[in-house]
Amino acid sequence: MPLPIAFHLGTIDVLPAGDGSHVIYSQEILPEGLAPIVEKAVSEGIAGIARYFTERP
């Protein structure tokens, strides 16, 4: 991280969507300049979870 995180609150909501789910990630972070870095990491993690479940029978 280029700067230390002073504050972070992240929430993940998983909502039903047809035969699957819709995932919504929201965050509050200070300093705000770190938001894209954390968002990218979380997005990659969520994509990994999706791959895990789609690759299982």
Rank of each mutant, 00 (worst) to 15 (best):
V23R: 08
L15H: 05
P2Q: 14
A35E: 09
Y52H: 15
A6F: 01
V14Y: 06
G33S: 13
H22Q: 12
R56S: 13
I12S: 00
F53S: 02
H8P: 02
A47K: 15
R56K: 13
G20F: 03
Y52V: 07
P57Q: 11
Y52A: 04
E32M: 03
L30V: 07
L9A: 14
A50L: 04
R56A: 14
I12N: 08
T54C: 05
R56M: 15
D19P: 08
P31Y: 10
V42H: 09
P31L: 12
L34P: 00
L15M: 04
I37Q: 12
G33H: 00
P36K: 05
G10R: 06
L30C: 07
I12D: 05
V42L: 05
M1G: 15
V42G: 05
P2Y: 05
H22E: 14
P31D: 09
E44A: 03
Y25N: 10
P57M: 10
F53I: 09
T54N: 10
P2L: 15
V14Q: 06
G10W: 06
H22T: 09
P16C: 09
Y25S: 09
P4F: 07
L9W: 10
I5K: 12
P2C: 02
P57L: 13
T11S: 14
L15N: 14
H8A: 08
